[in-house]
């Protein structure tokens, strides 16, 4: 068993994600208190190792079967690394890959897992994670009693610059796992069509969530948006229902936006939505539930019923 902290690197378009650097920064804090090293595992494209800064070692795994992501192939590499290195902790982002891999690695390697982690600290020798549960309404402080401890971390929880501190890492290739028996095959990656409007380019967005209740009432939000000259954005349930096009979805599996103003109606503020808009300069939220997590990121809030507030706003905006 070592005191190292293993970070699962993530990349897209030949670039390491911000999330990767957030994890490296968090890993450094833990590794320093344990007296261990930060080891980044980079699956798929060994050439990206040069982008890693702030770690002690980069372990690469590069093979034809790893160039396109499948849980099965990644899992065999990562499980191999966990068994071989017996790190104290493994940090992985709660992206699609994290949602796919973390729990499988926990079961396969028999190690504990905390998901939705937003904070990590070492208490004595024990790793203590703070996780966000019940859609962000409750925080749980959890001691992970055995090692390796896997932590699925919510994007944006740690500063990315802490992990991008200068300092090149040593690079070594992983012992190649047996990839001959993989059952899952990658077919194609399809990127979404650009929508009618680019919500990432707007200064002001009027966002609607499930609180609107019905497709017909989307019009109430559209009227306000029209009066303000702003596009309508949405939470996932609205685009899943087909009430607005997917190109309007903000969040983890939608678009990341950073408008100067973001007005929210009937959106609870689940972590997956907040991931896409928390950096907006002015956030105003309308939600009848005063405990709604959206009020933790909004600058201004109201618990009025959106059906009462929207017409008043539209009237003033049209005036």
């Amino acid at each position: 068993m070592s005191n190292d902290v293993l970070v699962v690197a993530e990349h897209s378009d030949s670039t390491l994600t911000d999330g990767t650097f957030e994890l490296i920064g968090a890993a450094r804090g833990i590794a320093d208190s344990w007296g261990g090293q930060v080891v980044v595992v980079l699956v798929g494209d060994a050439a990206l190792a040069s982008q890693v800064v702030g770690a002690d070692l980069v372990v690469t795994a590069d093979a034809a079967q790893l160039s396109d992501y499948t849980s099965e192939a990644y899992e065999s590499v990562l499980a191999g690394q966990i068994r071989q290195r017996e790190p104290g902790a493994v940090l992985i982002s709660m992206s699609t890959k994290g949602l796919d891999l973390a729990a499988a690695l926990s079961a396969a390697c028999g190690c504990p897992l905390v998901s939705y982690v937003v904070g990590l600290e070492v208490d004595g020798e024990t790793l203590v994670a703070t996780a966000q549960i019940y859609g962000g309404k409750i925080m749980a402080e959890v001691a992970i009693e055995s090692r390796p401890a896997i932590c699925g971390v919510i994007a944006g929880s740690f500063p990315a610059d802490a992990g991008s501190a200068a300092g090149a890492a040593n690079v070594e290739a992983a012992d190649p796992p047996d990839l001959a028996t993989l059952r899952t095959t990658f077919v194609a990656l399809r990127t979404p069509d650009a929508g009618d409007v680019d919500i990432t380019a707007a200064d002001l967005l009027v966002a609607v969530g499930r609180g609107i209740g019905s497709e017909d009432d989307i019009e109430l939000v559209q009227e306000l948006a029209d009066a303000l000259g702003a596009p309508v954005a949405a939470s996932r349930p609205i685009t899943d229902a087909g009430w607005l096009p997917k190109s309007r979805q903000v969040g983890k599996s939608g678009l990341k936006v950073k408008p100067r103003g973001y007005l929210m109606f009937g959106i609870s503020g689940a972590p997956e939505h907040l991931e896409g808009m928390r950096d907006a300069e002015l956030i105003i939220a309308c939600n009848t539930d005063e405990q709604a997590p959206v009020f933790d990121v909004a600058h201004y809030g109201t618990t009025l019923d959106l059906f009462d507030l929207l017409p008043e706003l539209t009237e003033r905006a049209s005036g």
Binding site: C111, K137, P293, H299
Partner: peptide
């Protein structure tokens, strides 16, 4: 699960939204 929950609590509301009344 191998986890011990030490504490559960509502998120700290230090920079919570200013509520418009």
């Amino acid at each position: 699960s191998g986890l011990t929950v030490r504490r559960m609590y509502p998120p700290e509301r230090s920079d919570r939204a200013e509520m418009l009344t």
